[in-house]
């Protein structure tokens, strides 16, 4: 998969073909399966006066049809003329190293966001189990420190892990920068602005 893509525009590139095939399949699925099941209004509607007007499916079907035509043209060009050479500095494809990056990156983000989501409610649940409070997290979403716990811990862990992974080492400057940004974000979004909630408090 990491093999270099040809720099000439003669051979059809598997990624080029794959892009065209996926778009063609998605557009046909949209017209024949997705839209009929997920759009209540039809392609045309008849008004109470008997006039026929475009319905809610009219424009989406036109766009999906345009997608199908464009992808068919792109596939035809790729087979006949070959794929265009990628721009300088670009491979024109996702390499194994890109997939590895995305996997690690999203794992770190999902873990951080997961902690952000569950930590506050989890701590309050534990306190209730231990008989330390009667309140649920819903009652405490505007009470410090509960409203900050998930955001600060989850946000800190996610961002510092990303910095550490990027730099290959733990640096105090990175930790200080993240803590400063968290403090500023709390001041701006929680203290200065009213009717705004930090994550994850709007969910409860």
């Amino acid at each position: 998969m990491d093999a270099k893509r040809p720099t000439t525009a003669k051979a059809p590139d598997p990624w080029d073909i794959g892009f065209g095939v996926i778009v063609l399949a998605v557009s046909l699925l949209a017209i024949f399966v997705w839209f009929p099941a997920d759009i209540k209004g039809g392609f045309f509607n008849t008004t109470p006066f008997g006039k026929i007007e475009p319905g809610d499916a009219f424009f989406p079907v036109l766009l999906a049809a345009a997608l199908a035509v464009l992808s068919a043209i792109q596939l035809t060009i790729s087979f006949i003329k070959g794929s265009p050479a990628p721009s300088a500095g670009s491979e024109g494809r996702l390499t194994r190293s890109n997939f590895r990056f995305l996997f690690i990156f999203f794992s770190i983000c999902m873990a951080g966001l997961g902690i952000m989501f569950v930590l506050g409610p989890g701590i309050v649940w534990l306190m209730r189990e231990l008989g330390l409070t009667d309140a649920t997290y819903r009652h405490l979403t505007d009470t410090a420190p509960y409203k900050y716990i998930g955001y600060v811990v989850g946000g800190f862990l996610m961002t510092v892990t990303l910095i550490t992974w990027t730099e290959g080492r733990v640096r105090p400057a990175g930790i200080v920068a993240v803590l400063s940004v968290l403090v500023v974000a709390i001041v701006v979004f929680d203290v200065l602005l009213t009717n705004v909630l930090l994550p994850p408090n709007a969910e409860f």
Partner: peptide, 11 residues
């Protein structure tokens, strides 16, 4: 950039 970009993501 290694510090700036993750911080940008958090913001």
């Amino acid at each position: 950039k290694s510090i700036m970009l993750p911080v940008v993501l958090l913001i």
